[in-house]
């Protein structure tokens, strides 16, 4: 999607898949020179501590590769679980849905003073 990458996690992630996703995503950011990444987890209904960490890791990796990463569409149950697990994902930007995430991403990139055209 232009300079943005949209990752949608649609099935319940298992550990191996999460690692592969991490790998694929970092390669894709480099290949497409993406400026922003949206990770849509609205269909994810169950998380464990490993997946929680993985999501946090993916966000950090995106940031290091120079792309703003935003986690969107977290379900209430997932949010509660993560909090109870003590994973507050500090430093990870979040948004309610993809649309909001897109607006936020655009704003963040604009704030960086880059030459992305105004909407």
């Amino acid at each position: 999607m232009g300079e943005f990458l949209l990752v949608t996690i649609q099935v319940d992630m298992h550990d191996q898949m999460a690692l592969k996703l991490q790998d694929d995503l970092s390669n894709a950011i480099i290949k497409n020179a993406s400026r922003g990444v949206l990770i849509d987890i609205s269909t994810l209904e169950m998380v464990d501590s490993f997946i929680g960490r993985m999501v946090a890791d993916i966000s950090s990796i995106g940031k290091i590769l120079g792309a703003e990463t935003i986690l969107v569409g977290m379900q209430p149950a997932v949010a509660i679980t993560l909090v109870e697990l003590g994973l507050s994902l500090p430093g990870v930007a979040t948004a309610l849905n993809v649309e909001r995430g897109m607006v936020l991403l655009r704003r963040k990139i604009d704030a960086d003073g880059t030459d992305v055209s105004e909407r």
Partner: peptide, 12 residues
């Protein structure tokens, strides 16, 4: 604090 964190995770 938990409530606040959960809300933040949801993007609010």
């Amino acid at each position: 604090l938990k409530t606040v964190t959960a809300l933040r995770l949801m993007g609010a």
